[in-house]
Design a binder for these strands. Sequence first.
DNA 1: CAAACAGTTTAGCCTTGGCTAACAATTGTG
DNA 2: CACAATTGTTAGCCAAGGCTAAACTGTTTG
Lengths: 159, 159
Amino acid sequence: MTDSNSHASLPAQSIPGDALPPVEQHAVQYATVRNAHETELIEDYVELIGDLLKHRGEARAADIANRMAVSQATVSKMIRRLNELELVTSKPYRSLFLTEAGQKMAETSRARHDIVLHFLRALGVKDSTARIDAEGMEHHVSDETLAIMQRFTEQQQNS
Amino acid sequence: MTDSNSHASLPAQSIPGDALPPVEQHAVQYATVRNAHETELIEDYVELIGDLLKHRGEARAADIANRMAVSQATVSKMIRRLNELELVTSKPYRSLFLTEAGQKMAETSRARHDIVLHFLRALGVKDSTARIDAEGMEHHVSDETLAIMQRFTEQQQNS
DNA sequence: CAAACAGTTTAGCCTTGGCTAACAATTGTG
DNA sequence: CACAATTGTTAGCCAAGGCTAAACTGTTTG
């Protein structure tokens, strides 16, 4: 399969997924993924907190624990980290709030998430699957790809 | 799967990414991602070992370390795990080999990886970006979405 | 054939992100 | 208003996946 594209210019490395990439490039791929993993969870929390604030007016640790299917202790520990990172403010036994940095992160994450989700739906993936896939994919989609996904979704809609 | 949209019945949840999903569904999303993370690294190793065997005839720990941009000690430890999981066989100071289970996993991973990579290229993402994104995305794409991606790529090519 | 070098493994450390159990504070109700 | 229920926190455990440093093989070569 897959000579790829037949007509375009593509002077790039392209070619099938056949040969091994050069070591340095390969290393960058893996390092990028590893890196993404470090921020992933943080972003998920911040994004969720943002959503809860928006739709519920408050974000309680218990809510987060339920929605993430994780123990309250885990959430509590995580909130301490988010505090240290100055992404949220929290007084014990009160709702959480996002700092400015937190809000910015929440918006960015939410936007990425929505673009990926809408793209998958536009592609023809059914809703429940799209939601799951989007949750996993969102942290691994580059800006370049994101832009293309968005364009694709728009085209699909005006048709 | 995948009649999808526009005309069909879809009584489903659909609608914008606007409302919060019901708690249980939300929980499943996160749990699925967490789960994927556990196997991700394993799959990456197995896939890479398979590729090295195929293209180089042997898979040495040093190679893996270089390509993954990780220390040799880390690789060594990981190989012990892969051994325990009966995915690879290794004699000390010799090349690695995949067990049957390992080969199967390598092929599956490789196939997923290629589908995602080719899809991204077909979408118009440039090669170097596509490689990075594919590396991160491959573990989070459902079979349903994968099938759709493959179909899309094929259509794109016969045009 | 011994020494140097490259490759591998082991030991021991660190951080993250889970968990349970026990305790503390807040809220809601009889 | 007291006390039960809910919610949050803390302590202490575990596994995974990194790291460096040190020890050990195996191979190459002077």
